[in-house]
Amino acid sequence: MLEARLEQANLLKKVVDAIKDLVQDCNFDCNDSGIALQAMDNSHVALVSMMLKSESFSPFRCDRNIALGINLTSLTKVLRCAANEDILTLKAEDAPDVVNLVFESAESDRLSEYDIKLMDIDQEHLGIPETEYAATISMPSAEFQKICRDLMALSESVSIECTKEGVKFACSGDIGSGSVTLRSHTNVEKPQLNVEIDLSEPVALTFSLKYLVNFCKASGLSEQVRLCLSNEVPLLVEYALSNNSYLRFYLAPKIGD
């Protein structure tokens, strides 16, 4: 039996909105630590890993592990019926064939209830090892989104190069080339605008901008984004949520032929 109550439907609406163009059918794995999701896009180039810790819900109850196989297009249609401030409760029996969603609006005494039919999704699960990354960049998520969008106008790939001078996003294409260089920066009044670069060794990798722009749909979830890079391993783009919850994207690098 699962019962998970979110103070604001907005959190789940934004998470699903951020990943629905990358993955279609996902298992929401529910257990006593919370609700997790891991899914790859069809080309196996990008992976999304979401964790909504039980602390994000109140109350949260999950007696045994339940995998809720849900089509994100269907979930989006139902979540559209919830107002951002509605209280959202997810419910499911053990071995369920539907997941139940209840939306309550505090002031107008309105209660909506929806059932979504579940799917049997046989999804391969990738083991992602804890990694000591050579470079970790924490920066405003809106800034990263702008860089990716701007450079995507010139090229389909971006090289990200981290040295002790800073981090350089560079690209070149048919019309020419462009680059954006950031250095560590502290904004005392607005720490959410800080740029922090931790570097243990220089890193240079190339990635597809189409995927990075897609990941940036999550920018509304967190003011800061964390980029983790090491040579020859996938990029980690992490949007931290409250209560140690997170939305993470992994992207395989492009390598020169």
């Binding site: 196996h44 180039v45 990008a46 992976l47 391969e124 090892p129 992994y250």
Partner: peptide
């Protein structure tokens, strides 16, 4: 042009 790697080459199914 550069070849796009896949995640399966980095992360194995546990």
């Amino acid at each position: 042009p550069t070849r796009q790697d896949m995640l399966d080459e980095f992360y194995k199914d546990p």
